[in-house]
Design a protein around this nucleic acid. Structure first.
Length: 982
DNA sequence: AAGTCTTCGTA
DNA sequence: GTACGAAGACTTC
């Protein structure tokens, strides 16, 4: 660092040396301010922000007279100080550093440097000792010293040439203030502290003597040694005995509290001369931290255009140094940010945590070098890569295809990686030139597809070689269609999901930026986007090769970082039982698809269209003009503008709200138009989303519909389904169920639908430890009726439907993290009444209130909650300042434990289902999952034998990991279509 | 052409 | 009050 030269300037008489107690600032900033995280990546930066604001205030205040000639921000370095050597209990009871403060230490040092201020710290010595030494040296040269700190331990340094300044209270501390605090002058502060001790730092002192008594004794006897020598003269019995008995302890305390004024300084006093701040570096830092207000202020003060300055590339979100920080490592030393004894011990041993930390460190320090990639053009070279993979026992794989749908896309090439920067791309089907109707236009130097498949098949199917991929379900399906059944794999996307669900995204690009500090080539850079986009097989091989090989390289590197975290963070079992097995289970379900009755859907489309036509005519009639009933804007204008119907609400953006609830209310008041709109909307929804769209998803070859299940899409562990979404097929209305009837079994088969009955309520009874609810489930009672009976004192026999309905709404409300507002909305009752219901519910079921409080507190403290099976769901915004955001996160966290536990259970069932069916000699095939329901296709004559197996696997899914007190119940039925089976 | 808002289907 | 995805309207580039 060439920054020492400009800082060198001997201290002379009349100079002004300012010493800032950095460590004290950090803790002040951390504890005094609400938590704050950087917007783009949730890096905790609250203390950094507070620290920067304080420094800026100090620098700008210029209230130091005379102007500082030398200035240093002084930090504590390690916990291992010479005081610990003489008294191991010194500061021993300090609580561990908060998790979100640790990574801020290196950032705060960065901040100091960005301010162009000297940053001083030294092993074995506390900041206080360093300041004492600087002060002593400066004094000797005739300089004036100002110590910026409010720490009472520094008050012993105050004298004619050394003053203190308390930045919190904004006042100077001179001898007068010291007397106020200790009852003695600065020169006797040490003696007072030796007697009174300090519970915070674990300085023992003498029992029964506090600051007041100590000051009084010293006033009488002069100094500590005299006092101890003449202790026998003291009148008060207990005090006399204690002073005699604990004299040594007082002397030890003196050693602890006396600041060392002769530390052999690493950075000499003359090397902390003030340099003229540049401003640009500071702005680059502040921009990287995303401190917009301070950035603006600083830019204005320096008259610099902040927009023209790039955020510090290493520290910005996604920067390499940020990646290290996220792992708790200091970007400069690559060591744990604060080397605690625990961390030091881990660093030496082969613990999972040590391995994980080491991998994170390596990952962010080995740059991606695309020039090292190879394009494989011969079978011989491919075979050498395969041999290398067998030798290593591990290889990263990525397939490149013509599209996003793994059931339709064709392979274009694949890439492999065996080590960082050791990656290749194998082009197979790149095309170029004129692609005539009959000619393929295949480019030269590509291995024939069949040869390549034959070369890699043994590798991919070998159980002894680990294949690593990102979103491997996609590649598994592509390879499956080429006759390769991939086994023995890890999926980096799923590893990330297990570790960080809800906290950060799991796509390859964000993962690469976060863990490797590297931005991979974008797909658009190779193939363009929008209208001009080309398929991957039309991309030039050299560019495609860089892109594809990089994907495999990055995937391998991500695996090196993320996989050890599983063991280090105790999540290996979650990954291995709830995630990894689902890749092939879901891939097979997707590959099977489900049959739909296209004729039936087409007929329904016609019927819906007719109904809509009739309604449109009536709507125009009533409105007195034709408008688009599908436009909320136009509809709002008609209803609340032209027709002047009262009772309109606005959406958050200021538009008229025309939601179903609003229209329903208007309809109940006797308005005809809103009813017609509601009916029209239902038909429009069913037609556009289902009857018109579904036939478009029928696969040209299989004749079936193949949805795609996402494993890593939700915060709670649920799956999601898309293209098409088969998890939201209508069921509530008669019209909607007709769509469900169009999902049919193949000839000679039936569909079996098996769903968990009230699984989330059962889990609530279990987790919230509510005996009456548990008993009700054990006795097989109607749970909503039982709730109503408990709450309203109505007997279950002959209970009015309305009473049960309300109890049911409350039960669901509880699962969703209830609020009076939401329940009132749901039941259309006043908020006060809803509040009273909730109060009564909690009185009847106090365990549930306790559960909700516990979950809220846990989430608040940790930033995540865990399911029964250990899955973590992160809620980084749980401590948001905005009360409604915070409340939302609290409700989500309460819901996540239940929804997530249920999701875990059905995942366990799915992972066991195939082997269980096979063992029973059954050929039933799982087709769909709808959160608490599984749908199978079964030969007619196996229906009877299949249902009990399915039921048993599902009901026993939690065992043996978790033994539930509450039984799980599964309802299962078979029919020729989904509606009747459900 | 791409992104946001509103609405609505499911558990 | 929780968790999603899709479609159409509308806005912005």
């Amino acid at each position: 660092m060439p920054e020492q030269d400009p800082r060198q300037d001997p201290v002379e008489a009349g100079d002004h040396v300012v010493l800032i107690d950095g460590s004290a600032y950090i803790f002040r900033a951390y504890h005094a301010l609400p938590p704050l995280t950087r917007t783009s990546d949730k890096l905790p930066v609250g203390a950094v922000a507070g620290f920067c604001n304080m420094l800026w205030k100090l620098v700008r205040a210029q209230g130091f007279e005379p102007k500082p000639t030398h200035l240093a921000v002084v930090f504590d370095k390690s916990e291992q100080t010479f005081r610990k050597d003489i008294y191991p209990l010194y500061k021993a009871q300090r609580p561990d550093l908060p998790e979100d403060l640790r990574p801020q230490f290196p950032l705060i040092r960065e901040a100091t440097r960005a301010f162009d201020l000297a940053c001083v710290e030294q092993d074995k010595y506390e900041a206080d000792d360093l300041m004492a030494t600087y002060a002593e040296l400066a004094k000797a040269k005739g300089a004036l010293v100002t110590i910026i700190s409010s720490d009472k331990d520094l008050m012993q340094l105050v004298d004619a040439r050394v003053r203190m300044y308390d930045p919190m209270k904004d006042r100077a501390i001179g001898a007068g203030e010291v007397v106020e605090k200790f009852g003695v002058g600065p020169e006797k502060v040490v003696d007072v502290q030796s007697l009174a001790g300090d519970s915070v730092d674990n300085v023992p002192g003498v029992p029964g003597i506090g600051i007041k008594t100590a000051a009084q004794l010293l006033a009488e006897y002069g100094d500590l040694d005299t006092l101890l020598a003449r202790a026998g003269e003291i009148k008060q019995t207990k005090r006399r005995e204690n002073l005699i008995e604990f004299a040594d302890q007082a002397r030890l305390s003196r050693e602890l509290v006396t600041l060392k004024r002769d530390v052999p300084l690493d950075v000499p006093l003359d090397d902390i001369a003030v340099v003229e701040p540049e401003g640009k570096r500071l702005i680059a830092f502040l921009k990287a931290m995303e401190f917009t207000t301070l950035t603006r202020r600083v830019a204005e003060a320096y008259e610099i255009d902040a927009g023209a300055i790039e955020p510090d590339p290493g520290l910005r979100a996604g920067g390499a140094e940020t990646a290290l920080l996220a792992a708790g490592l200091d970007p400069e030393t690559k060591e744990p940010a604060i080397p605690t004894e625990a961390a030091a011990a881990l660093g030496e041993g082969f613990t999972p945590q040590a391995l994980s930390a080491a991998r994170i460190k390596e990952a962010a320090t080995t740059p991606v070098d695309r020039s090292k990639y190879e394009t494989v053009t011969t079978l011989e070279r491919l075979r050498e890569w395969v041999a290398r993979a067998f030798e290593l026992g591990l290889i990263a794989v990525d397939t490149e295809t013509t599209g996003l749908d793994p059931m339709q896309a064709e392979i274009v090439g694949f890439s492999l990686a065996t080590a960082p920067n050791e990656a290749c791309y194998v082009p197979l089907a790149h095309k170029g030139g004129d692609e005539g109707l009959f000619s393929e236009g295949l480019l030269p130097n590509q291995i024939p597809l069949d040869d390549a498949i034959a070369a890699i098949k043994p590798l991919m199917e070998h159980p002894g070689v680990l294949k690593i991929g990102q979103n491997l379900k996609y590649d598994w399906l592509i390879l499956k269609r080429l006759g390769i059944e991939l086994v023995a794999y890890d999926d980096t996307m799923l590893v990330s999901y297990v570790l960080d669900a809800g906290a950060s995204p799991h796509g390859m690009d964000p993962l690469s930026m976060r863990w490797l500090g590297h931005t991979p080539i974008k797909y658009e850079e190779i193939c363009g986007k929008g209208k001009g986009q080309i398929r991957f097989d039309r991309a030039p091989i050299d560019k495609a090769s860089d892109y594809a090989a990089e994907d495999a390289d990055v995937t391998l590197r991500l695996w090196q970082v993320l996989k050890p975290r599983l063991a280090a963070e105790g999540k290996a079992t979650v990954y291995e039982t709830l995630e990894r097995p689902l890749v092939t289970v879901l891939a097979r379900m997707e590959a099977r698809g489900i049959t739909i009755d296209r004729q039936m859907l087409s007929r329904l489309s016609g019927e819906f269209a007719q109904g809509m036509g009739r309604l449109e005519a009536e709507i125009s009639e009533m409105a007195g003009e034709t408008f688009n009933p599908g436009s909320p804007k136009q509809l709002g204008d008609i209803l609340f503008g032209k027709m002047q119907i009262p009772g309109g609400r606005k959406t958050p953006t200021g538009a008229w709200s025309t939601g179903a609830d609003v229209l329903e209310e208007l309809a109940e008041q006797g308005h005809e138009l809103p009813r017609r709109i509601l009916d029209w909307r239902q038909l429009q929804k069913l037609k556009s989303t289902y009857t018109d769209a579904l036939p478009g998803y029928v696969h040209p070859e299989t004749g079936r519909v193949h949805t795609s299940f996402a494993l890593a899409a939700t915060t709670t562990g649920r799956l999601s389904s898309s293209e098409p979404n088969l998890q939201n097929i209508p069921v509530r209305t008669e019209e909607g169920r007709k769509i469900r009837q169009a999902f049919i079994a193949a000839p000679g088969h039936k569909l079996i639908s098996a769903d968990y009955s009230q699984i989330e309520l059962r889990l609530l009874a279990e987790i919230a430890d509510t005996p009456s609810l548990r008993q009700a489930f054990q006795d097989g009672l109607d749970i909503h009726a039982m709730t109503a009976s408990e709450m309203f004192g109505v007997p279950i026999e002959g209970m009015p439907g309305e009473v049960r309905r309300r109890a049911k709404a409350i039960n669901f409300g509880i699962i969703y993290g209830i609020s009076a507002f939401g329940l009132a909305n749901q039941l259309s009752i006043p908020r006060e009444e809803a509040g009273a219901y909730i109060k009564r519910y909690f009185e009847r079921f106090p365990g549930i209130r306790a559960y909700m409080d516990e979950t809220r507190n846990f989430a608040r403290e940790h930033g995540y909650v865990e399911t029964l099976f250990g899955r973590r769901c992160h809620y980084p915004d749980i401590s948001a300042k905005n009360p409604s955001i915070r409340a939302f996160n609290e409700r989500a966290a309460i819901n996540a434990r239940l929804q997530g536990s249920a999701a875990d259970i059905i995942r366990r069932a799915m992972a066991r289902m195939e082997p269980a069916l096979e063992k029973a000699g059954l050929s039933a095939r799982m087709l769909l999952q709808v959160h608490d329901e599984l749908i199978f296709e079964v030969p007619d004559d196996e229906v009877g034998a299949t249902i009990p197996v399915v039921r048993e696997v599902m009901e026993l899914a939690p065992f043996p990991a978790v033994a539930l007190e509450v039984p799980l119940k599964v309802d299962a039925r078979a029919a020729s279509n989904w509606d009747e089976a459900h």
